[in-house]
Write a protein that binds this DNA or RNA. Structure first.
Length: 459
RNA sequence: GGCCGAGUGGCAGAGUGGUGAUGCAGCGGACUGCAAAUCCGUGUACGUCGGUUCGAUUCCGGCCUCGGCCUCCA
């Protein structure tokens, strides 16, 4: 088996991945806070870790990989959205979670094994906070429960900074009830108009960080194999998760490998709701297929920044068209039984999920298929293409349907192509070229081949 | 101020201490009635200044530029 190598934020190095138990490989990725539609930047971790999920299932077997991606449905931003719109919190969170799921499905993202909701884990959260108080790692103050950061020596190991740096850079007023400026909230009081649950510390709600620790423990265990998320979650979110989980689990590691995806930018600026330079998945899917968006996203390595643009999407579409063109030319060839991705393709993906390299291998397979002379060879390559594509969540559509695209004038086009065929048979090239020019003007491209004329939408 | 990361050919984007991935675009050719698609060929790319080395885009150091985190954020 090819060795899977992953880059670990904790060690800042790539290393061979070794799960605790190959029969139960565990991965957790921080999911969305459901208060608005996801933008394309939010989709990057979902997509990146979806590819890793597919790769892990390929390497270890489908039934041996457990992947959890949470839904944060209790958060002050949600409360604010509710007060602003007048809609109930549950209305908003339910709608936005549904939209998130359907948007991700549109991008070919597989549902994770578990999709835990924070509000369904309040008792686990309270239990973990109790443990932390009992062990002296947390304290109650002014209706809040806070984590005692100075009591955890390894705080800052993931983000590679120490508490002194943090204090030096602190830009925010420190709440008076904090013993140390770095202490963070585990539980906070709720007023009557805010969602809240009864707890030993009064009616309140959990802080953001504790929910992930509690849900990981419940669904995956104390030490998981892979923890992923966006680069901006390294500090403080993941640092805090580590502190909470390790202190309530006798010090064992929370995750063996920490992976973080880089950001999507728009004109080089980070795409974010606060800046307002966002483009939602919903908007994008009106003009681009989910597969085109997916291809564009995977065209850069997950740790690199990626500048999102229409040009990027146009290039992705063009390359996909080319690959589907190759597959269409293989449509007569039967898919061989037991087909597997090519070795070079798996090697590329196994090198820290190097999707650009994997995509290059897909191109190489296409070229080989286009030049292959024997049907045996072509069948083998078709098998590689189909299964390699599947690992990336690409090339699973019917090639002919993909190339023809969506339209309601297929029959009319077919008729014109037929008329042109007759004109060509009569060597009436003036007429045949006129028909082709008309079709070109409508955005239809014709391809005359040995076995007749094919057409596709797009120039 | 502290901590991260990035600067590759017209564009996107991998990678490597020594035969210039891959895709798009361009140019030449084959094929075609002409095209399209496909195929073949075609590029003196690695921010800058030093250092190490027989040899650096790749290692080390300085500098410049850009981005991110330090507050909610994928």
């Amino acid at each position: 088996m090819i060795t899977l190598k992953l880059h670990n934020t904790m060690t800042k190095a790539k290393a061979a991945f070794e799960p605790t138990d190959p029969k139960r490989v565990t991965m957790y990725v921080c999911g969305p806070t459901v208060y608005s539609r996801p933008h394309i930047g939010n989709a990057r971790p979902a997509l990146v870790f979806d590819v890793l999920f597919r790769l892990l299932r390929h390497l270890y077997g489908e039934e041996h990989v457990v992947y959890a991606r949470n839904i944060t449905d209790i958060d002050d931003k949600i409360n604010a959205a509710s007060q602003e719109s007048g809609r109930s919190i549950s209305d908003i969170t339910k709608e936005m979670a549904d939209i998130y799921r359907s948007d991700m499905a549109e991008l070919g993202v597989l549902p994770p094994t578990h999709e835990p909701h924070a509000t369904a884990h309040i008792s686990e959260i309270i239990a973990m906070i109790k443990t932390l108080i009992n062990s002296g790692n947390a304290y109650e103050a002014d209706g809040h429960v806070l984590f005692n950061v100075p009591g955890f020596d390894d705080y800052g190991n993931l983000s590679h900074r120490n508490r002194h740096d943090l204090i030096a850079g602190a830009r925010v007023d420190v709440a008076p009830y904090k013993k140390d400026p770095a202490d963070f909230v585990l539980w906070k009081p709720s007023t009557e108009d805010l969602p809240g649950w009864e707890s030993p510390w009064g009616r309140g709600r959990p802080g953001w960080h504790i929910e992930c620790s509690a849900m990981i423990e419940k669904h995956l265990g104390k030490t998981i194999d892979i923890h992923g998320g966006g680069h901006d979650l390294i500090f403080p979110h993941h640092e805090n998760e580590i502190a909470q989980s390790r202190c309530s689990h006798g010090g064992v590691d929370l995750a063996r490998v920490w992976m973080h995806n880089g950001f999507l930018t728009m004109d080089k600026d980070k795409m974010s709701k606060s800046i307002g330079n966002i483009v939602t998945v919903h908007e994008l899917t009106k003009t681009h297929s989910g597969e085109t968006i997916r291809f564009a996203m995977l065209s850069a390595h997950y740790r690199q920044p990626l500048d999102w643009s229409e040009e990027l999407l146009a290039q992705a579409k063009k390359t996909l068209d080319r690959m589907y063109g190759t597959l269409e030319n293989l449509s007569e060839i039967a898919l061989p039984a037991g087909a597997e991705p090519s070795e070079a393709f798996i090697a590329a993906l196994s090198d820290d999920v190097n999707t650009p390299k994997a995509l290059a291998e897909l191109s190489a397979l296409c070229k080989a298929a286009n030049t292959a002379t024997s049907d045996v060879e072509r069948a083998k390559l078709k098998g590689h293409l189909a299964t390699s594509g599947a690992l990336l969540g690409l090339l699973q559509n019917d090639p002919s349907a993909w190339l023809k695209g969506d339209g309601n004038d297929d029959q009319e086009i077919d008729a014109l192509v037929e008329a042109r065929k007759i004109a060509r048979a009569n060597k009436d090239f003036t007429e045949s070229d006129r028909i082709r020019d008309d079709l070109t003007a409508r955005g239809i491209t014709l391809e005359d081949g040995a076995d007749g004329t094919k057409w596709r939408r797009g120039l």
